[in-house]
Design a protein around this nucleic acid. Structure first.
Lengths: 170, 170
DNA sequence: GTTCCAATTGGAC
DNA sequence: GGTCCAATTGGAA
């Protein structure tokens, strides 16, 4: 409750970092913290290593690829076709792969909804911070672009999706 | 008229570059095109050169410094105190020095005004493109930051000024 | 009181 | 239809 009221007052996407930090700290205690990034797995995977990889239960799905510390899974077909020359397009493609349009159209980065007069915060309005973190970190790595700009693209994507959803429902 | 109608349709701040290009082309024909930047003049000015500088009529005012291709003049006191570590603050300070609050609060970069339903373009709504160009080029030079971001700050400054003006008038 | 930020919105391509 | 852009707006630091 204190977390919610604090968030209602001051949580903006940037200061949301505090929340993510808490999550990150929790995760860092877990044994799987030292995670293989998607591209590492891609590079290392050769026929001989595939045979051994059955020992972990994570590899059950070969059509998806895990990204980031939280192992958010992205369809391999999407991952392979990502265009890293444009961090905007890459981010948007990842968002489409990780979330459905309903989620993108109804949630946003901070969980803050703005209607006429005032903003309200609700956890249900927030995109899964772990998945967002995974996407941001991946794009940041591959495009070497400021994290803020990536989050801006995500916010934009949410706005665009909500907009088209609204238009369609007329 | 065709220029206006074209602008009404498609002129965004970025495509405003076309307009500025025309202006720039005109100016480039003039003899003063090869302009000394403010910092160059600052560096070169020694007691001996000051004595000679009376030959040009531009130097009449020693309390201001010219910046950019269009020799927009900025108060020397402001120029000396610019903080180039923050392109945002530097840009805002320059705007305050070049324009008055009334201008900043009523005009914007593109000349497009948006009220409920539709946008309208008018040259009188546009900040002097030459002065804007001077500021942008100067900040770009000293902060090595993308021109778009500088223009974004300018747009923001206009928005902020208009906002406070509106609140004050209540 | 100014700066900064994020969401929203409408238009353009 | 999706992407990008600029202006607007309200709240926060």
């Amino acid at each position: 409750m204190s977390a919610i009221s604090r968030a209602t007052q001051t949580e903006s996407s940037d200061r949301l970092a505090a929340v993510q930090l808490r999550l990150e700290n929790l995760k860092s205690i877990l044994p799987q913290h030292d995670v293989a990034w998607a591209e590492c797995q891609e590079v290392q995977r050769s026929p001989t290593t595939i045979a051994k990889s059955g020992s972990t239960q994570i590899k059950r799905d070969r059509s998806t690829v895990p990204i980031g510390h939280y192992r958010t899974r992205v369809a391999r077909s999407v991952y392979k076709n990502l265009n890293w020359d444009s961090y905007s397009l890459a981010t948007r493609a990842l968002l489409d792969a990780v979330f459905d349009k309903e989620t993108l159209g109804t949630k946003n980065l901070s969980g803050i909804k703005i209607d006429s007069k005032g903003r309200q915060w609700s956890a249900t309005n927030m995109l899964d911070p772990q998945k967002i973190s995974d996407i941001v970190q991946l794009v940041k790595r591959n495009c070497k672009v400021d994290e803020r700009r990536i989050r801006k693209i995500i916010a934009h994507k949410c706005g665009d999706t909500a907009s088209t959803k609204r238009i369609k429902s007329l």
